[in-house]
């Protein structure tokens, strides 16, 4: 029986397109596709099970008391009201558990903050409400915004069923392309308000501030398309600025990069930049109008 279940699960997993690890009724965090995301998932499961064990213990005592010590069953209350011994025990044991938890968490944190030896650096700028990707020293940069199909369907009372739109709200016009097995450093900043760049399969999110640079890194260990969203409230269309990362093999990435460079450096932007710029101007005008 277990074996059959395993095969079924494997078949379902194989049937999923790359990056579509999300399923309906999903209840847990994705394991993800980077070394950091796997460690983070491990920490998440560890602390989760620690909590479950403590919960079972505490709730058992409470449920036992609720069932056993009822006045309706003739329970007579005890008269004691403290016990230094048990109080010391249940102060010390949690401290020990926390120390046990803190050590692996601190180790992972140190890895997350280690930005050294990156092989590709991309500056990512958040705007209301799109992202701009700039491959530093490669002469490639472009805007990335919600694709047209999602944009049409998400209008108020659009009459379009979101379920008919593939990757509804999680598709962009120009994807952020990176090579597999490469330490990619992302420098984050913003052109207006605070945004946050987040791809769940990569395990990390980081805020983007106007006038400041924050950074994160990831090394994807398999190719595929991975989707995320802006994770810091950034105004009207906060819910509509997705992030789509396409992890390609190193050769495919080089080919993609050269193709981009060949078409005047910012090719994807040729189509996107024009509407994007006008969008920015409109936003600026809106902001001014609001300020007045």
């Amino acid at each position: 029986m277990l074996k059959i279940l395993k095969y079924v699960a494997a078949a379902i997993a194989a049937g999923l397109p790359a990056g579509a690890a999300f399923a309906a009724w999903e209840v847990n965090m994705p394991v993800g596709v980077t070394e950091l995301s796997r460690e983070i998932h491990g920490l998440h499961m560890l602390i989760f099970w620690v909590c479950v064990v403590i919960a079972v213990l505490v709730f058992s005592v409470m449920i036992y008391s609720i069932v056993k010590f009822r006045r309706s069953k003739g329970a007579v209350p005890a008269t004691w009201d403290h016990s230094t011994k048990v109080e010391v025990v249940w102060t010390v044991i949690p401290i020990a558990i926390l120390v046990g938890m803190a050590v692996p968490a601190a180790e992972t944190l140190i890895k997350i903050e280690d930005m050294r030896d990156s092989e590709l650096t991309v500056k990512v700028t958040g705007y209301q409400w799109q992202w701009h990707y700039d491959y530093l020293d490669k002469g490639v940069s472009f805007f990335s915004r919600l694709d047209r199909k999602s944009d049409a369907a998400r209008q108020l009372r659009s009459g379009i069923d979101p379920r008919t739109v593939e990757n509804y709200l999680l598709e962009v016009d120009n994807r952020f392309v990176v090579p597999v097995d490469t330490k990619v450093r992302v420098l984050l900043t913003s052109g207006d308000v605070v945004h946050a760049w987040w791809v769940p399969e990569f395990g990390l999110k980081k805020d983007a501030f106007p006038g400041f640079i924050t950074e994160l890194w990831f090394r994807a260990t398999r190719t595929g398309v991975f989707r995320g969203q802006c994770a810091e409230l950034c105004g009207y269309d906060h819910g509509f600025m997705p992030i789509v990362v396409e992890v390609k093999s190193k050769e495919d990435f080089e080919a993609w990069l050269q193709e981009q460079q060949a078409t005047t450096g910012t090719p994807a932007a040729q189509t996107a930049a024009a509407p994007a710029t006008s969008q920015l101007e409109t936003d600026a005008a809106l902001t001014v109008a609001r300020a007045e």
Binding site: F22, A23, A24, E26, M29, R163, P200, Q229, L233
Partner: peptide
């Protein structure tokens, strides 16, 4: 809890279809 772990940001008025059930 499930929605958050599965990747739904807070403070969004609309969401991708895999979050519909919960």
């Amino acid at each position: 809890h499930f929605l958050g772990l599965a990747g739904m940001p807070r403070r969004i008025p609309d969401y991708s279809t895999q979050f519909a059930d919960w």
